[in-house]
Design a protein around this nucleic acid. Sequence first.
DNA 1: AGCTCTTCCTGAAAGC
DNA 2: TGCTTTCAGGAAGAGC
Length: 288
Amino acid sequence: MPELPEVETVVRGLRTSLPGCTVAEVRFGKTDFVENFAGIAERLPGMRVSAVKRLGKFICIEFGSGASTGVANPRANLIVHLGMTGQLTLLRSGEAVAPHTHAFFALDDGRELRYTDIRRFGRMLLVPESELADFLGQLGKEPLEISAEEFCALLGSRRARIKALLLDQSVLGGIGNIYADESLFRARLHPMRIAEKLSKKQLLSLHKAIRDVLADAIRFRGSSISDYVDSNGNRGEFQLRHRVYQRDGKPCFRCKCTIRRVIVAGRSSHYCPRCQPAPRRRKKRIHR
DNA sequence: AGCTCTTCCTGAAAGC
DNA sequence: TGCTTTCAGGAAGAGC
């Protein structure tokens, strides 16, 4: 599933050759994952890519005004969320079309940017520059940019389970199920711990664990569990280095104890019961 | 505030 | 063998 490291890998790939290219033609297959597909098909041709960015799990392809359109065409941003199975790949226009490919952006250099998404949990929309600030305002903090102090302040007063908060995109943008579990393992925190009850030391440990895990995962070009590939169609390798994610029933790399799986915040959560001890259950009050 | 449940969608895997 | 059912999950919305 594409999370921050996978999206970052896709963005870095696109960034090497997409800026400067002009869109020649836009075509769509199914459009139920696109907001205002007709508007995108009408607006983008003639516009030139000026930058490619990552915002949490969103890919942001920034378009400046194209050479042919001039002042009448203000800046706009094509925002893409890969959902569960989304792929954004750059190919030559003539190449065979993979099944479930639903968006085609033909470029002026004979290549094509294609969006493929088996389950169509992904999303695509065009955000005018004037509305980008509003869009960004809904996103949580960047896990790789937030300071330790800010991280502690953000989570330390919340009464929700720590795993739920890590997955909440309006708190931190970019962490999904894989990296939440891997971060909690490294910080030795059980996913059901209540954030408010964590010590400063534990929060600082989690902040570092998140940074370390994400940086490692980016170095290995993300985790390919099922469908994830980068902009060149290559799989990542970080799935080979997961310590707990989808390792339930297998021995912990640290202590050999059997990794377990529980549902937290509606998600499978994998943890080592010895390295990540369960929170102490509240003592029952005895009323008289 | 925060939890659970449901919906979206398809393919893989399990069940019969 | 082959058909049917179940499950997985990011995000949003409903209801509690």
